[in-house]
Amino acid sequence: MPKSKSDKLSGSVMVVGGGIAGMQSALDLAESGYYVYLLEKSSAIGGVMSQLDKTFPTNDCAM
């Protein structure tokens, strides 16, 4: 397990990718007491899901 310089386990997590999965991981971790670095290569999070119109099987708006 990576140790920080102070030899203490870090309370931070890096999430790479800001699509639906990355956002969900980041939210879960942040809400349960970890500092999250969410890395996204484009200028906004959302990923492929944000491009979709509706989602099956409920036809809810993807946005």
Partner: peptide, 27 residues
């Protein structure tokens, strides 16, 4: 999507299990 979202939470869980002793240290 639901499977991705579920997996994302699962990965958060796995991460959280491994770091549980440092919860709240960096916030």
């Amino acid at each position: 999507i639901p499977q991705s979202v579920t997996e994302a939470s699962a990965a958060a869980c796995a991460s959280s299990v491994s770091l549980a002793q440092s919860r709240g240290e960096s916030t």
